[in-house]
């Protein structure tokens, strides 16, 4: 009984089962060879686990490096845009123009500038997510009640203290929500970015299976990609729970 409850409390496990179930239903309803059976795919993935793991690791490192650099660039700009109204007045319209543009369209330009290798792929991901991070951080800063700044004034605080005790803690939940969206977009971008000039990456693995019309292999890649996503989202959840404990929310 207790065991059952632990399982039923595990959202990840439930999610996995529902996905499998939906997949199985679709598999039965749409009887086509382009959709492989879930069990068959999982077994295939299991037999291919080592090569697939290498692809996953290659993609994960690209995403991690890109997210790291996007944070280093985006957080200070976001804070500045949130604090400095003049800067924000010029910057926001620019942001709103850039934001909806499908940045993958710039991949050829980036490849021309930075070569075909990892650099252009990572820069593409940075280019795509950095605006998301800037926006999240800027809005986070703008949502700080002005009375909180008055409180800091009442303690005659230095600028540094304002960052340490007020701005950084206030924006960290916003950074995490920006990160979640960014990682989702990054993973989806891999499919496109890893199309060129690489033989490693889960995006490449899926695409090459597609061109080979090997649908079991292709679906095994998609499953691996979703595992990678879950892993990264879980890591963010843990990091968030650790660094913003006042902001508790279930799952």
């Amino acid at each position: 009984m207790k065991y059952l409850r632990t399982i039923s409390n595990n959202q990840l496990f439930i999610g996995f089962l529902t996905t499998l179930l939906a997949w199985q239903v679709i598999y039965f309803l749409i009887d086509t060879h382009t959709i492989p059976a879930p069990m068959e795919t999982l077994i295939y993935l299991y037999t291919m686990k080592l090569p697939v793991l290498l692809h996953v690791l290659a993609s994960m490192s690209r995403v991690l490096v890109a997210v790291g650099i996007a944070l280093i660039i985006g957080v200070p700009i976001g804070i500045f845009a949130g604090i400095n109204h003049l800067f924000n007045q010029f910057f926001s319209p620019f942001l709103y123009y850039i934001y909806p543009i499908p940045k993958v369209a710039f991949l050829p330009v980036l490849m021309l500038l930075y070569g075909l290798g990892n650099q252009s792929k990572v820069i593409l991901i940075i280019f795509i997510i950095v605006f998301q991070i800037i926006l999240s951080v800027r809005d986070g800063v703008r949502q700080i009640p002005s009375s909180y700044f008055t409180v800091m004034d009442s303690f005659a605080s230095s600028t540094l203290s304002k960052y340490r005790y007020l701005i950084i803690p206030a924006i960290s939940p916003h950074i995490f929500s920006g990160l979640r969206i960014s990682i989702g977009i990054s993973l989806a971008t891999l499919f496109f970015a890893e199309n060129y000039a690489t033989t490693y990456g889960i995006g490449y693995y899926i695409l090459s299976a597609w061109t080979k019309m090997d649908y079991i292999e292709m679906f095994s890649g998609i499953v691996a990609l979703s595992f990678l996503g879950i892993l990264m989202f879980k890591a963010i959840d843990l990091l968030e729970a650790k660094t913003t404990p006042w902001n508790k929310k279930p799952f």
Partner: peptide, 19 residues
């Protein structure tokens, strides 16, 4: 400018949710 040695108690208190 605000002095270190002046204390201010706000009506809305102004406690930070993260502290």
């Amino acid at each position: 400018k605000p002095r270190v040695k002046t204390g201010f108690l706000f009506q809305e208190l102004g406690l930070f949710p993260w502290q």
